[in-house]
Design a protein around this nucleic acid. Structure first.
Lengths: 133, 133
DNA sequence: TAAGTGTATTAATGCAAATAATACAGTTGA
DNA sequence: TCAACTGTATTATTTGCATTAATACACTTA
């Protein structure tokens, strides 16, 4: 089975971050489970018409985060789900994300109640209608 | 009165975006109101030990968004609050922000309910405890 | 008119993303 | 064993963008 990556070159977000993001999402939503193998660096690079180094960098960072485990000669596999960050670190990251979110939406002049309502809907949708692999 | 900008050079976020963000936030929270005058390009550049062009770029983008109005020879002023974007555009931006938010938080493995609870608290806090000018 | 506004232009610097071309080391299966 | 895969590391180069810099210009106001 081949994962359907959606990459936009020229986007302000670097390609390697886009790759990371999609894999992180697939892991978070259960599309990718422990033990699943990711495409090889070279195969994915060819599939996305991208340099192998770019894919390698994405894999490298995911490995550093502990989300995947790579074994030279075998491949990259989804790691066992475990608590990677401390409770404090997780809340810190959540705070940053929340601040950024409000910075991006406050000036839209949408009532907080409506934003929260839509967030709840989007959130449940995010974890159920995960993108097809 | 002089606004208390908090700029971090070397941050992944460009300086001109940091300036934009703070002004947007002050407008959203009511700290800056219609008609208020912003510091001059040169004055703010000196205050932040930053190049005037950097400040000018921030002001230029805020002007393009319609949040401020600039008049050569007079200065830059907070514009009248009005609907800058169409309803569709506002919801599109909200959707993008929500997606990015979940991409940043999903892998933290924090229950959706708790995220929403914290978001509500952070949201009300965002609009009440606005940063001092 | 002088001193202050915003704006525009051009050049130079620095940094990071991305490509490219290799080389190396571990694993697997014929 | 060996060929064909894996991931990893290194170096060089290109590219684009943020930033600084130095001006110049046009408008406004006292």
């Amino acid at each position: 089975m081949s994962l359907r990556f959606d990459i936009t070159p020229g986007s302000p977000q670097p390609i390697y971050e886009q790759i990371e993001g999609q894999i992180r999402r697939w892991i978070a939503t259960g599309t990718l489970k422990e033990g699943d193998q990711l495409p090889s660096v070279r195969a994915l690079a060819e599939q996305l018409t991208v340099n192998p180094n770019t894919v390698a960098r994405a894999y490298s960072e995911l490995t550093a985060e502990g989300l995947v485990a790579s074994h030279a000669g075998r491949g990259v596999f989804i790691a066992a789900r475990r608590q990677i960050y401390s409770e404090e670190e997780r809340l810190r990251r959540l705070s940053c994300a929340m601040k950024r979110f409000f910075d991006e939406t406050a000036f839209l002049d949408i009532p907080l109640a409506e934003i929260l309502r839509r967030l709840e809907a989007a959130g449940t949708d995010y974890f159920t209608h995960s993108p097809k692999p």
